[in-house]
Design a protein around this nucleic acid. Structure first.
Lengths: 341, 341
DNA sequence: TCGACAAATGACAGCGCTGTCATTAGTGAA
DNA sequence: TTCACTAATGACAGCGCTGTCATTTGTCGA
């Protein structure tokens, strides 16, 4: 049991010394057995593992990480955990890290760059081996900390800018272009757009810009457009499409900033007696499961969120030191034809 | 810069000693300034903070936590991060902890008790001040570790059993009873049930049992019931209701194990030309936003997930030592009438 | 049996910070 | 000016483990 300086009266958990005493070897040998590092005789290993079980010893990662200068932690900084997009990313991160011994530590920024700086500072205090950030938009303070720390950095979701270290995601600008091309090939000519706050979702803006670029190249444009100031949601999508169609403009297809909004648009059509595709095409982004469960499967782009999280985490732990040059891992996207456009 | 034993050649981050040298005070004074602990003269504080900014010093929480026997970490063990229910809980936890200095560390169990044991062991190695677990079902190994650690433990989501320390949630058995009472008061008499895997969702089973108990007390029962072996999803709900109704049984209302399943049931009705409530009532559980965005708002029970997470985290950090007696914090639930039942 | 080599184990120092008690500096009253 | 008390600061030891080098033990071949 740990005794020493007059710490507050608290739990007396077994430490290495207790296991060492019981198994008749030194602390460092016990440590070697537990970490499975270096040569250990089978006999010693058995005695130590028996003593571990008997004492109920749990390693102290604080001490181990401090002594070894390797916390085995990976910081994960996400705008939101309730947005299924990032929840899928987090699932990919967890799955990639589970066999590696690395542990994710999650901070939430609420889509705010100043909050991201605070979260990053707080996470860096834990000396993580790596950190995962969403997007490329950071404060100068955040950038300075990341530069000073020299740890691996993955910027995820987007690959349309130069990363600090490695970027993992898809080109949202290209996705916007491909959406336009695809819908044009389906015969649509009058485009509407329903979106949400671009300040917090830069990637939605990039997709819109790609869409507009491609339409422009074909001598077309967006005939009706409406964006809300807040976050995306199904209800917001429903209401915003209602508002857009109430203007009298008659787009033959409406591109939504994401699937949440598009599902809401679908609900508006149900309530307004419009049939998706026959009366107006609906097109989302992300390829969420709920879109596939609709009576008419939502037409959308599948972004590989799980894969983004998984590949980002794998890239970081595969090489602990930061390379001199930057890298981009393109997880791509797929048009999901569906039945609404 | 930190120099000492021959650690691997790596980043040389500033430590307390660097700040101390630059500001002309001792390390412990620098530490006091940063932690805002004990008496500090304004002049000294200013010199230290200036040196901190100049060196870019980031505290090392590994060292601080080890030395102070207080990691300021809270372990959070969740079955899933993609299930919006737990994502909302996590949001509540993050919000409660943000002003407290405590940092959540999340592990994911995939609804598996053995995996929960592994995650708990892994989290305990970080000496968290407290831990949050979902539900009451743990392995003996998990229980032994939690008993030995003496840290605060919140078991969340359910209050229908005796907790290790504190339970935060609602009574699912009561909710099932109240659902039955409510629907009976609406005139429904022929009950159907569509559910998902009870092995991973014990609380769905409790609600079902409460429902059946109350119906039984009124001389009634469930006339048609179908459960799938896997997790809940909108698509599963859609398909399972289709299968249930194809049996020829004609329930006048169908209770679903949760909103995901109920929304899927709604989609089946749309595709099958059935009108919710007029042709068959639909009743969910959880009060998710997507249910409220449907053309006809889903009838459901609102479980206060955010509040569960928030109150659990607050309870844990409010008192660091584990009380001798257990406690239950009932976050309650509300019937949301909606328009489908 | 002895010597060489490899396997196994241990001693030492220290990772970066903080609890605790000791010391110093500052302030106010007589 | 001196003394008493409080505020401010510092020295010391150690939290629990691990990197590194030294020492011991075991094995095999001559």
């Amino acid at each position: 049991m740990s005794v020493g300086r007059s710490a507050p009266p608290q739990r007396t958990l077994p430490v290495l010394a207790d296991v060492a005493r019981l198994s008749g070897v030194s602390e460092i040998t016990v440590s070697r057995v537990i970490r499975n590092k270096g040569p250990i005789s089978a006999k010693t290993r058995e005695r130590v593992l028996h003593a571990v079980a008997e004492t109920g010893y749990v390693p102290n990662r604080l001490a181990g990480a401090l002594a070894s200068a390797d916390s085995m932690l990976v910081g994960v900084v996400l705008p939101s955990v309730t947005n299924i997009v990032f929840a899928d990313v987090l699932r990919g991160i967890h799955e990639a890290l589970a066999p590696s011994g690395y542990q994710p530590v999650v901070g939430v920024t609420g889509y705010d760059a100043d909050e991201e700086e605070r979260v990053v500072r707080s996470l860096l205090a834990w000396q993580p081996a790596a950190i995962i950030l969403a997007g490329f938009e950071h404060t100068d303070g955040t950038r300075r900390m990341l530069a000073a720390s020299r740890i691996r950095v993955a910027e995820i979701m987007d690959i349309d800018a130069t990363p600090i270290d490695v970027a993992v995601g898809l080109s949202h600008r290209s996705a916007g272009r491909d959406i336009a091309r695809y819908l044009l090939s389906r015969g649509y000519r009058r485009f509407g757009y329903v979106g949400h706050d671009w300040d917090s979702d830069h990637r939605a803006r990039l997709r819109f810009e790609g869409l507009v670029d491609e339409l422009s190249a074909q001598g077309l444009g967006v005939v009706a457009e409406r964006r809300i100031a807040g976050p995306s949601s199904t209800l917001a999508g429903r209401e915003t499409l209602a508002g857009l169609l109430a203007t009298g403009e008659r787009p033959d297809v409406v591109v939504f900033s994401n699937d949440d909004m598009a599902v809401g648009g679908y609900f508006h059509c149900l309530a307004a007696g419009l049939e998706p595709r026959r009366d107006v095409g609906l097109f989302g982004f992300n390829g969420l499961e709920i879109g596939a469960a609709l009576p008419l499967r939502l037409s959308t782009v599948r972004s590989n969120r799980f894969l983004i999280g998984k590949l980002a985490a794998e890239a970081l732990v595969a090489r602990p030191d930061r390379p001199d040059d930057t890298a981009i891992i393109n997880t791509g996207y797929e048009i999901e034809a569906g039945e609404t456009a």
